[in-house]
Computed example of a mutant assay.
Amino acid sequence: MFSGFDLGKPAQITFTSDYHELVTGDLKPEVNCHISYDPLRIVPKDGSYVHGDPSKPIFIHVQFKENGSTQSKELYSPNGIISDPHIDVTGRGSMLFQEVFIPSDAEELIIWFSYLNPNTNETLYDSDYDHHFHFRWPYHDAWVRKVDVVDDSLSDRFELEVGTIPSITQVSVNWRVLNSTELLKEVTPLKNVSQTDDGTKIWKLSTVVPKRAILRFKLYYEVNGRQYKNDNASQYFLAPQPQQINVPPPPQAPVQL
């Protein structure tokens, strides 16, 4: 079974200024999720907002199931007010933060943000066009059991096996060949072929790819009519899997007699 890149590591969701939402770490119930947010996503472009100004707060709003109760918290700047913030679209610049504890009975993590524009008294929202941002537990919902690119005469075959929790109704793989210009990107559904005694659904794909293909892929899966993804903490998966490099230990100092 493939071990996820960030399995067991602290959960974080980064909301970047170019409107990407990057999940890293092991997002799941009964953990604290660290929220990192670029205020340039929501504040007016007129320069009236100063990074981290507590008199002009940005709020995060959280639910743990559709139409559930809402928790709201003010985002904060750990370095206080910054008049000349570092701007970085990857989320490594000046950011605002908050912690969200995900309870054991959470069905999903639903997030949106709000900001009261003091110039117009209008509340601005960052809410994925009123749909809100929905996250689930990628490593625990859908995981790679087996993956390989196998020799098949004139071509090769991309062989993928995925396990999921019982409530997942669809699985597809978004993949591309890295070492060929023939195929840019494909999204291919997997077939549910069986279910194990513990309830794990088994999904499989076998499809033709160019000879000696190296593939990068991520998983999409559907729960209750909504699509989520497992992109291996934004690192994606590779097929065939790269061989593990065993680094020799450093030489020991000679023993003084």
Rank of each mutant, 00 (worst) to 15 (best):
L183D: 11
T90P: 06
T169K: 07
P44Q: 08
Y129E: 07
F113D: 01
T207N: 09
V209D: 02
T120W: 15
K56I: 03
D130M: 05
A239Y: 12
W203E: 00
S69L: 03
Y220G: 14
F113C: 01
P250I: 15
E66Q: 10
P44F: 05
Y19P: 00
N119Q: 14
F113T: 02
P240M: 05
P189S: 13
S72T: 10
S155R: 05
R226C: 03
D197W: 08
A253P: 06
S172T: 13
S104L: 13
N246Q: 09
P103M: 00
K191V: 13
K218F: 11
T123G: 07
W175R: 06
R212K: 11
I81T: 13
A239P: 05
A142G: 12
H51V: 06
Q235T: 15
H61R: 01
E108P: 00
F135T: 06
W203K: 00
K229T: 04
D151I: 12
L109C: 02
G47K: 08
V150N: 03
P242Q: 15
P54W: 11
Q243R: 10
G93R: 04
Q256N: 09
E107G: 05
S234N: 14
I82T: 15
K146D: 03
N224K: 15
P248F: 07
S17I: 07
P103R: 01
E74I: 09
Y220I: 00
E99D: 15
Y221D: 09
L22H: 08
C33A: 10
H51F: 15
R41P: 01
Q256D: 09
V43K: 06
D130W: 05
I87Y: 14
H132T: 08
K45S: 10
P54E: 06
H20T: 09
I214P: 02
I165V: 14
P44T: 07
Q98H: 06
S17A: 14
E122P: 06
R92K: 14
N117M: 11
T196R: 15
D18L: 06
S17Y: 08
C33H: 03
I87N: 07
G47S: 11
N192G: 06
S114H: 08
T188V: 06
R41H: 05
L116P: 11
D6K: 05
D84V: 11
M95L: 14
T120G: 02
H51M: 12
Y228G: 11
S77F: 02
N79T: 13
T14L: 04
Q243C: 04
V144I: 15
E66I: 08
V208C: 02
T14H: 03
Q243L: 10
F158A: 04
S3C: 10
P10Y: 01
L190T: 03
P189M: 09
S155K: 07
Y236T: 13
V149E: 04
S172Y: 12
G225H: 14
D128R: 01
P166L: 03
Q244Y: 14
I102E: 01
R41N: 15
P242V: 13
G4N: 12
S172A: 15
F113S: 01
I42K: 02
D38H: 02
Q243N: 08
T70R: 05
L190R: 05
S153L: 06
W112V: 06
